[in-house]
Design a protein around this nucleic acid. Structure first.
Length: 537
RNA sequence: GCGCUCGUGGCUCAAUUGGAUAGAGCAUCUGACUUCGGAUCAGAGGGUUGGGGGUUCGAGUCCCUCCGAGCGCGCCA
């Protein structure tokens, strides 16, 4: 890796100067401004003070040294600004990138072993089995699945899990609601009032007892949710049942365990978790004075269960659950697990517009917009892309009309079109008798057009983009890359004909290499997002 | 009141986690089609990064403070 070579020579010179900098402290980054080269280091700036030197002078001295010992692939080194050291890499290096993409196995360019095979459990959606999935579940579904893709691509052993709260008060209310609608009675005051309750109740067999109704409803809800997720390509490895965990004695085990650790105690007729000691605001009740446990207790048991199966846990929670993070981490710490290995990603709310107007919730339907109807309206690809467009840290707003439109202002179409175009160019080349074969580096050096260079640059930064997105659990960084890269492709398509009267054979073959490599790269990005890469549209 | 997450052109959002001149898309205006899909491309205008203070070579990013938004704050789930 060129970046390693640069780091090595930097640290070599710094050591020679008696400046102590650990290798990991040598930062090398991609300058935002292309005029500053391909790589840039701030080591001179960072170390100048301690070394009692001025940064510019130090940078220049390092530059002079490197100029006498240029590593392979580095064409130019210079100092700039307040003391940056900028590196420009050679064309040949760029062509090697192209070759690497072309010779990579299917769906492997940019993959890595960053995760070293560590097992990670990604739990997301986890909607109550009391109704269909709605708009509020969509962001977590798209996000969690894409995070799973990313982590898997960088070498983690990923397990996707859906936690079903299939017992407790809300299931009872749900059962009674179904029962009432079955009998054409109004649902109880605190019941589920959505239209779907009647629809479902009508499909329910006659003569079921409440317990059976609950089981039937739960099962129906699960299949309904599963089907909706499947429409978006989201599949879980495990649908974990709270009920079965409790029936197998999970609660007793956790209570015993907490007691043995000395982190629970009795007070006012209740059993408490001493969570304040572990960073929570206050202690929490595990067993109420009426003998029932709170909903925290099974959740603790569940997380313990997950920890016993995985090295690292990721929970994707809605913003309304963020207050719950501290106590869950505290509980895990109390049990002796490392709270750092429990990552909770909170997704902020999404506001939906249609034609610029906020989509109003309908009371009649029970205050929900079904996810299924969103997918039907804008399509699965659009749904995934739109929900992944932005960082889940911030609130999001998007317009369903825009997301459904097959127009240039719809980013999904823009990106998919880029892929379709690449395929189209390949088809055209084939029809004209050109056969793609990977060319050696010295035959690729006809690729010098700024559009071509831009594309190669895009492919070059894909692996580091993937790594960053995985490290930060931030699929929107892939979206940004995919959009930028598509922009480069459209530009190339516009300015650089691959096959045509005025294009000589050597250039056609080289550009065909570029086209195929781009298609591979773009598909890697889209796959990570769970968005299809169509051959034609 | 306390806590968490935020606040970036008219709108929707980025910004390599402290880097160099804050970038894209939409919208607006102006240009570009005999070829592989114009569903495209190029250019222009538009910013005191909510306000103020601080830290340092350097702040949208870190600290303090104020303003504003969303969400939490139960022996509910």
């Amino acid at each position: 890796m060129i970046s390693e070579a640069i780091k090595n020579i930097l640290s070599q010179k710094l050591e020679g100067l008696g400046i102590k900098v650990l290798p990991k402290e040598i930062s090398l980054e991609r300058p935002a401004n292309r005029d500053h080269g391909d790589w840039s280091s701030n080591v001179a700036l960072v170390t100048a003070k301690e070394a009692g030197r001025d940064a510019r002078g130090l940078a220049q001295e390092i530059v002079d040294f490197i100029n006498e010992n240029l590593p392979y692939g580095v064409e130019e080194v210079s100092s700039a600004g307040p003391g940056f050291i900028n590196f420009r890499t050679s064309r040949a290096l760029a062509y090697e990138v192209l070759l690497k993409v072309l010779t990579s196995k299917e769906n492997s360019y940019g993959s890595s072993q960053l995760g070293e095979g560590r097992s990670v459990n990604v739990e997301f959606v986890s909607a109550n089995p009391t109704g269909p999935l709605h708009a509020g579940h969509a962001r977590g579904a798209c996000y969690g699945d894409s995070v799973g893709n990313l982590l898997s691509y960088v070498g983690y052993d990923v397990h996707r899990e859906f936690y079903m709260n299939d017992r407790g008060l809300q299931m009872n209310v749900f059962g009674r609601s179904l029962e009432a609608r079955k009998n054409n009675e109004p649902v109880p005051d605190d019941g589920y009032g959505g239209d779907y309750v009647s629809d479902w109740a009508n499909q329910m067999p006659d003569g079921l007892a409440l317990e059976e109704i609950i089981d039937w409803g739960c099962d129906y809800a699960k299949r309904d949710q599963q089907e909706t997720l499947s429409q978006m390509g989201v599949e879980f490895d495990t649908w974990f049942s709270e009920k079965s965990m409790i029936e197998s004695g999970g609660i007793e085990k956790i209570l015993t365990s907490l007691e043995e650790q000395g982190v629970s105690y009795k007070r006012d007729g209740a059993t408490w978790l001493a969570s304040e000691k572990f960073g929570d605001d206050k202690d929490r009740v595990l067993i109420k004075s009426d003998g029932e446990f709170t909903y925290l207790t099974p959740d603790i048991a569940y997380h313990k269960h997950k920890f016993e199966r995985s090295d690292w846990l990721i929970n994707v929670w809605g913003a309304d659950h963020h207050g719950y993070i501290a106590r869950m981490k505290a509980a895990m710490q109390a049990l002796g697990f490392d709270p750092e290995e429990l990552t909770v990603q909170v997704t902020q709310l999404v506001k939906l517009l249609r034609g610029g107007q906020e989509v109003k919730l309908s009371k009649r339907q029970g205050d929900i917009i079904e996810l299924r109807s969103i997918i039907e309206e804008i399509g699965a690809d659009s749904t995934r892309f739109m929900y992944l467009l932005q960082s889940v840290d911030s609130k999001q707003t998007f317009d369903l009309e825009l997301a459904a439109s097959q127009a240039m202002d719809n980013p999904v179409y823009y990106v998919q079109m880029a892929h379709a175009r690449l395929c189209s160019i390949e088809r055209n080349a084939n029809e004209k008798g050109f056969e793609f074969k990977p060319l050696p580096v010295d035959e690729l050096d006809v690729l010098v057009h700024p559009r071509e260079i831009e594309i190669i640059r895009g492919l070059e930064i894909l692996p580091e983009t993937i790594e960053l997105a995985a490290r930060e659990l931030a699929p929107h960084k892939i979206v940004t890359w995919v959009r930028d890269f598509s922009n480069a492709i459209h530009g190339f398509h516009h300015d650089c004909y691959v096959v045509g009267d005025g294009v000589r054979k050597e250039l056609t073959n080289a550009r065909l290499n570029l086209v195929v490599a781009s298609r591979i790269g773009l598909k890697v990005g889209l796959d990570l997002l769970g968005v299809t890469a169509p051959d034609k549209m």
